[in-house]
Structures are given as C-alpha cells and as structure tokens.
Design a protein around this nucleic acid. Sequence first.
DNA 1: GCCGTTTTCGGCCCGACTGTTTTCAGTCG
Length: 573
Amino acid sequence: MKNFDLAKIFFEMASYLKMKDESFRSIAYNRVALTLESMEEDVEDIYGRGGLKALEDIPGVGKNIAQKIEEYLKTGKIKSYLNLKKQTPVKLDEISMVEGMGPKKAKALFEKLGVRNLKDLEKAAKSHKISPLFGFGEKTEKNILEGIEFLKKSKGRSLLGHITPIVDEITEKLGSLKEVQEISVAGSVRRRKETIGDVDMLVASESPEKIMDFFVRLPWVAKAWSKGKTRSSVRLTQGFDVDLRIVSPKSFGSALQYFTGSKEHNIATRRIAILKGLKLNEYGVFRGQKALAGKTEEDVYRAIGLCYIPPEMREDTGEVELAQKNSLPEIIGYKDIKGDIHCHSDWDGGENSIKDMAEAARKMNYEYVGISDHTKYLRIEHGLDEKQLEERNKEIDSLNKSGRHIRILKGCEANILNDGSIDIKDESLAKLDYVIAGVHSSMKMDKERMTQRIINAMKNPNVDIISHPTGRLIQKRDEYQIDFDKILRAAKEFNVALEINSSPERLDLKDANIRRAKEAGVKMVINTDAHHKDQLKLIEFGIAQARRGWAEKKDILNAYPADKLLNYFKNAS
DNA sequence: GCCGTTTTCGGCCCGACTGTTTTCAGTCG
C-alpha cells in the first residue's frame, strides 16, 4: 500500500510550497495528501487498472500530480520533491510539531540561523539567538522552548479514553456557572477519534468574561496560552491543551458544527453552502446579511440542504454526499448493545466474581452478559483447562438457575496457536454458548503465516468470534502483519464475527477496518474485554468506533437479543 | 495545482488571537 507514503510526501511538499509563498499550490498538494490518506483503494491498483487516466479521477488529482504519482510508483521517488528538499533542507514535519511554529517561521530561522531540525531549534532558543531576530521576540522564544518540552513529554496526542474523564469534569464545572446557557465538547473528542491532539469546548453565553476568568483558573490549568472574550486556550497539568470558545446562544449550533469539524467535513459543507448562494461560518448560515440558521446544528444542516450528520461520521469520507440524498446509514446507537460478551471473571484471575460481573452488567441495563475467561495456553492469565472450564460452567448454570441475575452466557477466550489450532479440546468448546479466539503469542509472525493462522482458527466450527483481530496497541504496538482482505473473506465464508474491542488502548477493529468489514458483509461484536466490573462502561468507546466505521445495528451481533444471538452462533457453525 | 449546475480563468474556508508590530503576518482550528 503506497497511499500513506505518497500522502506523506505530498504533505511535505505542501509545507515546502507554503514556505515559498505558493499557498494555492500548497493547498492543492495538501488536499491530495488528505485524500490519499483516507482512501481505501490502493493507488497502485488504481494505476494498474486504468493508468494516468484513472489516477486523474481521484478528486484533487490532475495531470500534474497524476504524473508525480506515476513517477513514484515506477521509480520510487519524485524529482520535484527532492528538488524542494534540496532548496530548503529543513525538517518541516519535525519543526511544525512545535506549537506556534509553521513554515514561515521555519524559513526565517533557517535563513538567519541555519535551523534545520528540532535539535537546532532547541539549541537556538536556549542560547537566546531567536529573540533578537526581526519578527520574533522574548515570548516566541519562550513558547518554542515550552513547546519542545511538551513534545518530549507527551508525544503530542493522548488516548481518547484517558482524557474523557477530565473533560467530563471540566464540562460539569463550567456547566454549573449561571452564565453558561449551553455547553458541549466539540472537536475530535466529540467525533470520538481514537487519539486527541487538544480538546475543544464550546459554551453559549451572553457574558463571556466571567466564564473565561473562571476557565483559566480551573485547578488543572498549568498555563494559559491565551485569553480573550471568545477564545481562550490553556495547558492542563495532565499534559494536553483545552480550548474554550464562547458564542452567543443564537450561534451555538453553527459554532458547534464548525468547531466539531473535521476540517475536511467543514470544507465540504461550506462548498455546498457556496453552491447554494449561502455562506456558512461559525455564526450561522447566511444569505447576504440575512441569518437563516444558527441556533442548533440540525437547523444548520437543514439550511444547506443536508440531513443531520452524527459527529462520529464527519470526516468527509462520503457522509456529506449521502446526507444530500437523505440516505445516511442509521448507525448503531449508544444504547443499542444488549450485552457485553467478552468479560473475564475471577476464574482466570480477573478482579470480580461471575456474580459481581452479572450484577454490574445489570446496572448497565444489559439483557445478558457473556463470561469468556482465558484458556490454558495463557498461563500468565491463569487460563482455564478443560476441567476448570467445566467447573466454571457449573457455576454459571447454578447462577442462571437461581433466577436472581440477568442471563449469563458461557464463553471463553481461547488462544490461536501458531498453526491456527485452538488450545483447548473441541468437545469442551462445543459445550459453550460461544467461543472467542484470539492471538496472544508469536505476534511478529510474517504476513502470510499470520493470515493463514487466523483463517485456520476461523475454520474451526466452534469458533464464533475473533478477539482484537489486528492486535494493535495504540501508540505502542503495530498491528500484526495480516492480509485484512483475506481475513474478511474468510470471516464471511465461515460466518465468524470480528470483535470491536472497546479498550481505549486497543480499539481493535479500528474505524476504517470496521467500515471495510461492514462493506464485506462481515458481522461484528462490540466488547470491553473487561477484567474488572468497572471496565464494563468502556463499551462507549467501542460503540463510538463502530459509529465512526458506519456500523449499523444489524451489523453488530450483541445488539441482538440473547436468543437471536445464540441462534446466530449455532447456525453459523 | 485543481476545478467548473453562473466559471476553461480566476478563485481556492475564514475568523480569532498572539506577538510583534505602528497596521499586520503567522498560526491555528
């Protein structure tokens, strides 16, 4: 897949062009880079299928860029890119990661001080060579040093699941002020992206000053970057930034739409507004001076001829076109899950008893809960052998018999061994309501073997679900080397569901793969993999990713009632 | 460099804030 390599090159070219003040060419390259990054089809396949002509059908790609893509596919490099790099040998991608540094400042520092990378930049700032320069000053120099410190500490982005608790607290604190009429989180947090750069919050109020004073003095604030009447920005001690915008209530909807983004989605919606002779900005939808909408997001979308688009879908990957035709898929809702079926109990070293897990699941308003303890290969997780599994089943049977709990299903999370066989006997697996199988070892296997390993596991008629199918840990461990298309075809053929693991560190399947699975007609389940009863509530993150992957209720098996779910598993094997 | 339901030429999203200026460029979202 060359899409990402090419996207990276075009992003860089866009920055270099901006440096040279060629802003419109820069926009063109940036746009193509974004398209390539989010495109599902391999650009190499497109070229193979229809040559230059087919490349030009990609939005934003014209003759010129098509030729550059061809050049890259044939020779592995792009001459004009190398030339740009030669002209200004500056690591722009590195330098612009520092808050407040962009192409223009980078250019000035290169020409005057020879700054080529992050290290040079830090050295120049530390030896106070930057502040005397024209256009720079004390503050800029200080901000550069602080920006570099921040980068070293945080790697830039935080996991969604790690920041939402504090975001909820801030929302509650601000929301309790009497001056606040409405409040919502916006930006990538509202879109539920798996990682977050900074947090955007929006408030509707007629008296913003008091709120801003309160905001920059919140107990978690380490530093206020800026403070104004409509926008303030702070860094929290937790290591990420929060932006607060305040607008008048009559613009709350349009501002929420605007600050929720994504940027690409906004560009698309604004284009539609322009085509209709309207103007869309954070203050509303306007025809000339006349405001047509602004109070709610629904009004805004309606005014430009679109139906409401859920925040999780706003990435300009086709949702705007469907909204124009009023044919968006009805994506799964946050209350549609009927039971979590990947939960561990104290039988395999989890924190809580089966009874406690069932009680916690009842509080989640579930109809059922599935206990799927590890099996014997995983010694470190106290995996159960055939005999222990039998004992555990008896406990579940007696709990179910007592009638005092929600329905408890008997499952397990078995291990897929290197050859694709399962680490526990088929007779034992057959006695369970369902079987989850997952890879927990030899994760660095080569692509062909790993793909075949998982497919072999799916061929076992007892296996119903593959847990965390790609094995990634966000920002820590890459996905296994697998041919995902082959996995999808096998999942469809053998009627095996793929898990959407809700753990904020995993989110596996991820959004793009969920969409591919859905398109391939493969069923999924959304689970938490809870090892503690408090982790059941993490399901919201899995549902959020499912929504980002456009999954509908019918695609998600544990949105079915228990009997329908069990029937599915029975008939699938 | 790309693009077209007023356009094959003339636009390309656009407003807020900062830090440096003395009227604005650069950055961000």
